[in-house]
């Protein structure tokens, strides 16, 4: 009976062995998180404090002030009355439909996650651009981060840190950071060789080359990466709400389980409105800061 069955049935490892393997690995990881969980959690305390402070700031301030600041920032970045008017209208509607508080929570988590992604992603991207070895090591990790279903890496984060804001934001950052890393790397690698060579020929050292040539010339790409990172962070907000991140994601989650279509739609639209605002504003800003590239004589 053993002679032909391996053809029709995949020779998988014994069920018992598999269970033992899973148990061993999970047990090991649980052991790890039990021993180091507290230490790691306290490591993230400053982040939590900042997150809480920022959220309180947005929720605590009078809505008129928050709205004025938002519209003001939009105008400062884009210099466009039309865009500023759109943002104003969108947020008035959001408030009118009772989603103000959730929107502020989402806004705060997106802002913090984006800042964190930039703060981590740009140095990693620079390191990748400087060394082919680093690039060869980081690229597959990024590939995995982007293709692995988001739910899967929620599990170890939750096992380690439990449910709450910090694991939520870590999950968002893991999900959203690859574009800014990739495009920083790409942008620096694409910097005109001759311009960089010129800087070197004038005696610029590594830091001077980075700040005066590489980063400024890579900026259009880095900005595109930041833009994508923001969009991905917004997409992750709904999933992150599963592990206790408050905001627009939670009502969406609730409406899935309870089949509240209108509630889901409204909150979904609010997320879309925020996304459009971030996208347009960051793109308008990027375009404005790259004005010198609009060449008059061609190139």
């Amino acid at each position: 009976m053993a002679d032909a069955s391996w053809l029709t049935k995949f020779p998988a490892m014994e069920r018992a062995d598999l269970v033992a393997l899973r148990k061993a690995m999970d047990g090991g990881y649980r052991e790890f998180s039990r021993t180091y969980g507290d230490a790691i959690e306290s490591f993230f305390d400053p982040l939590l404090m900042f997150l809480v402070w920022f959220e309180k700031l947005l929720l605590g301030a009078p809505w008129v002030v928050v709205l004025a600041v938002l519209v003001g920032l939009t105008y400062a970045a884009s210099r466009s009355w039309k865009l500023s008017g759109l943002v104003l209208g969108a947020f008035l509607l959001i408030g009118y439909f009772g989603m103000w508080a959730d929107t502020m929570r989402t806004l705060s988590i997106i802002t913090v996650a984006t800042l964190l992604s930039i703060a981590l992603g740009i140095p990693i991207g620079i390191a990748m651009a400087r060394s082919d070895r680093v690039q060869a090591m980081v690229t597959p990790v990024l590939d995995i981060m982007q293709t692995m279903p988001a739910f899967v890496y929620l599990i170890p984060v939750v096992m380690l840190l439990g449910i709450g804001k910090v694991p939520g934001i870590i999950a968002v950052v893991i999900y959203a950071i690859p574009p800014v890393i990739r495009l920083t790397n790409l942008g620096i690698r694409l910097v005109d060789r001759e311009v960089l060579e010129a800087a070197t020929a004038f005696g610029a050292n590594k830091a001077q080359r980075l700040w005066n040539v590489q980063l400024p010339l890579a900026m259009p790409n880095i900005m595109a990466g930041i833009n994508q990172t923001i969009m991905m962070a917004l997409a992750m907000v709904v999933i992150a709400s599963m592990i206790g991140v408050k905001g627009l994601g939670q009502p969406v989650l609730k409406s899935i389980t309870n089949q509240y279509f209108t509630l889901g739609l409204l909150n979904g639209l609010a997320i879309v409105a925020i996304a459009i605002m971030f996208d347009r504003v960051s793109q308008a800003y990027a375009k404005r800061s790259q004005k010198h590239l609009e060449s008059v004589h061609g190139d």
Binding site: E194, V195, A201, F202, G203, A204, P216, L293
Partner: peptide, 20 residues
């Protein structure tokens, strides 16, 4: 770096100017 700063400088075929 010092030597490049003071002793010689270079002019490039495609100019190599900083566009920003």
């Amino acid at each position: 770096e010092d030597f490049r700063r003071h002793k010689m400088s270079m002019v490039f075929q495609r100019f190599g100017l900083l566009p920003h």
